[in-house]
Amino acid sequence: MILNIENLHASVQGEPILKGLNLKIQPGEVHCIMGPNGSGKSTLAQVLAGRDAYEITQGSMTFKSKDLAEMEPHERACEGFFLAFQYPHEIPGVSGLQFLRAAVNAVRAFRGQEELDAMDLMSLFKEKAREVNISFDDLKRAVNEGFSGGEKKRNEMLQMAVLEPQLIVLDEVDSGLDIDALKVVSDAVNRMRTPERSFLVITHYQRLLNYIVPDFVHVLVDGRIAKSGGKDLALELEDRGYAWVEEHAGAGAE
């Protein structure tokens, strides 16, 4: 199993947000989480990534059988956990190239691998940038500074492609994307689908799932998974809205 979350409770500033969440992800699977605003989707992503501000009050989460709660954020990253942020941050004065190099070398150092040769890295970055439609000149700009919303999302995809993680959480990677960018981003994800790699896709829009076809869809309501199903669940949700799930909450939950 790649990810195993059992009865996870987490709160921020004393306020419980996740209230007994269960989720299992096997290698190669694509899971999708949908749910109303404020239901805790981003919180789940941040808790998995190790954000300090969230306190885990109950339950457990393991990544490749390792207890995530015991790991520093960078250790989780180095072990192959990647979060594509809903709002990627700017790093003024640090170029995209510099950032990618720092990240790749940090991950390699963690794994006891040698630093990659600067020239090899450069050609790797160039190739991956082309795949997500980012020009080489844009890689010389400061990370996310002055980039449009859609460009920032493509930057996230580039980092993902370069770091080759094993579990990828995409937090609203489709928000603010035009049709073409949506295609670029989903292609980037689909290119990375392998029997070993898993995804957790957080979104509000069924449309994304036409491009990234999930194996499972879960509906998160009030910090708990209220309903799970196959990819058709998303279509049903679009028809009926979240109220329908909330009414039946409990019935569809595992």
Binding site: G50, A77, E90, I91, A103, A106
Partner: peptide, 22 residues
Amino acid sequence: QLFYVQQRGLDAENAVSLIVNG
């Protein structure tokens, strides 16, 4: 911001120094 950098694999020390360098 620091968390963002750490999520890409840099430990706290290196993340701070990357940001400061920028």
